[in-house]
């Protein structure tokens, strides 16, 4: 639900003059049975199910032994490609809309309207407080107005349009809300770390217009944090289950559950793959961000 910390590099261990007595003396201390035991037990708990699931997914139930068909046949599984493409579409749509909405908002907020910052920050973090299931319950109620209270109005047409058709826009619109905390934190950290005031003033001072300043100075300097926000949103949308399943769409995560009714191995292998891919994605972000820059916690 909360907190994404790509790196722990920002630890505030004070460096001493000689460059390392603190760490060195720590290393000299005896390893500590307690610490080892904690790591061992937690290691078993966390790695156990992963290993178990992997083993389960490659068992050959018919002939015994090992086979990788659950992985080999992922793409040919019935419904998989539809679900996958849907998730892809939702992910891209969400990323685009949330960046389009939030990048100008955040720049404006920092440069011109700082007094609105507490309000905007609170609003952006609210989706973490309100359980998604509550939000989706509300969305259900509002959608139901279409054929009832709003029948015959342009709003009914709008509500119809976002539900039906090839792209379920209602999901994208709500996913933008769900990813707001991530987007806000990434962009906020990025903007703080480059001191956009000085950059902007320097740009204006050199005779650039606001447009030039935004396109040529601000956006390029926020590249990492924008990328960061995009990755996080995408990953979140790709794994999203609650809203999609309650509104009865079948993107990737819902497909995994549906397939699980009949094909346990397929669901297990997809689960493992999605965890692995998300993890690699986060590792990539953490490497991109470097150790000193944006640390996104939510």
């Amino acid at each position: 639900m909360v907190a994404l910390t790509p790196t722990a590099g920002a630890g505030g261990l004070a460096e001493t003059q000689t460059g390392g007595p603190a760490t060195s003396s720590r290393r000299r201390r005896r390893p500590g049975i307690g610490r080892g035991l904690v790591l061992l037990i937690c290691g078993i708990y966390f790695i156990g199910p992963l290993v178990g699931a992997f083993w389960f997914s490659i068992q050959d139930k018919v002939h015994g032994g090992v086979q990788f068909s659950a992985y080999a046949h992922v793409f040919s599984a019935v419904g998989f490609s539809d679900a996958f493409m849907l998730s892809l579409k939702l992910g891209i749509g969400t990323v685009l809309i949330s960046l389009l909405l939030m990048v100008p908002t955040m720049l404006l907020l920092h440069l011109r309207a700082p007094k609105f910052r507490p309000v905007v920050e609170t609003l952006c973090l609210m989706p973490l407080v309100i359980p998604p299931v509550v939000l989706v319950a509300g969305v259900g109620v509002v959608l139901a107005w279409g054929p009832n209270q709003l029948a015959g109005t342009p709003l009914q047409t709008f509500l119809n349009a976002i539900q039906s058709g090839k792209t379920p826009w209602v999901l994208i619109l709500e996913y933008v809300v769900l990813t707001l905390p991530f987007t806000y934190r990434s962009l906020d950290a990025g903007i703080r770390s480059v001191d956009i005031h000085t950059l902007t003033e320097a740009g204006l001072n050199l005779g650039a217009g606001w447009g030039t300043v935004t396109m040529r100075i601000l956006l390029p300097s926020l590249r990492t944090s924008v990328l960061n926000a995009a990755f996080l949103s995408f990953a979140l949308v790709f794994g999203e289950y609650t809203v999609a399943s309650i509104l009865q769409y079948q993107p990737f995560a819902v497909f995994i559950v549906a397939a699980g009714q009949t094909e346990g191995q397929l669901s297990t292998s997809l689960s493992l793959l999605s965890l692995l891919i998300t993890w690699l994605l986060l590792l990539l972000i953490s490497l991109l961000g470097g150790r000193n820059s944006t640390k996104v916690d939510i």
Partner: peptide, 28 residues
């Protein structure tokens, strides 16, 4: 190792959801 562990923790804490259920179904 810290970076590995912290990103892995982030995956499980934020993006776990459905896959976690299947890990345990497959195991226990």
């Amino acid at each position: 190792l810290t970076r590995f562990v912290s990103t892995a923790a982030a995956v499980l804490a934020n993006f776990g959801g459905v896959p976690l259920a299947f890990l345990f179904i497959a195991t226990v």
